[in-house]
């Protein structure tokens, strides 16, 4: 029976790979979260702006608030990678 042992190089390469997967998941999943949050706000914002042009600034502000979620994800991803 042959027992495979992991060399230091392989372990290091795996760690980098898992970090990359983690970073990808952090950005990807938070991006989906942001999208889910934004679609409702976005639909309402477009509706409100169509009726009242003055609402545009406020509507835009509300629409971008869920962006914070994906920014947190991005920060986590950057911390993981660097």
């Amino acid at each position: 029976m042959v027992v495979e042992t992991m060399t230091i190089e392989v372990a290091q390469a795996s760690a980098v790979g898992f970090k990359a997967i983690g970073a990808g998941l952090a950005v990807g999943l938070t991006g989906m979260g942001t999208g889910l949050a934004q679609f409702g706000i976005g639909a309402a914002a477009v509706g409100a702006t169509a009726e009242n042009k003055e609402m545009f600034g406020l509507a835009l502000l509300f629409t971008v608030i869920p962006e914070t979620i994906v920014i947190f994800g991005l920060v986590v991803a950057l911390l993981l990678l660097f």
Binding site: F39, G40, G42, A43, A44, V46, G47, A48, A50, E51, N52, M55
Partner: peptide
Amino acid sequence: GPAPYIYSSTRMRVR
């Protein structure tokens, strides 16, 4: 999906 309802309900609420 729910987006058309959100859009139309908001417009009607403003009106």
